[in-house]
């Protein structure tokens, strides 16, 4: 149960730069006048960030992943239940991979 001094410095450095990225977005926006145009831009961010999180990973997760993604989408749309969409997605991808091997 020891901490090497150099490792401690690295961890603190990592923590500092990571927190900086978390803190910088709101800080930057607080320096900008929230014009109508900026508000419209911010309004498009959640959807486009989520798309960017999802689509590349989905394309790399194979046929089982794409089918499961579609299943999650349908369940979320019909039920609006996050947990149900998660459960159906996991079960579908697990079943798909078990079948394909």
């Amino acid at each position: 149960m020891t901490v090497n001094f150099e490792v401690l410095l690295i961890i603190l450095g990592m923590a500092l730069v990571t927190y900086a990225t978390r803190w910088a977005g709101p800080w930057l926006m607080s320096r900008v006048k929230l014009s109508r145009r900026v508000e419209i831009w911010l309004g498009y961010l959640p959807g486009t960030i989520l798309i960017s999180l999802v689509v590349p990973d989905l394309l790399k997760s194979g046929l089982a992943g794409i089918v499961a993604g579609f299943a999650s989408l349908v369940v979320a749309r019909l039920s609006g239940n996050l947990f149900l969409a998660l459960l159906v997605g996991i079960i579908t991808v697990w079943a798909g991979r078990s079948l394909v091997g």
């Binding site: 959807g47 989520l50 798309i51 999180l53 999802v54 990973d57 989905l58 997760s61 992943g65 499961a68 993604g69 999650s72 989408l73 369940v75 979320a76 996050l82 969409a85 998660l86 159906v88 997605g89 996991i90 991808v93």
Partner: peptide
């Protein structure tokens, strides 16, 4: 796949 499913549902 759990993370992807959550992101899809929120999307």
């Amino acid at each position: 796949f759990a993370f992807l499913a959550v992101f899809i549902a929120l999307l």
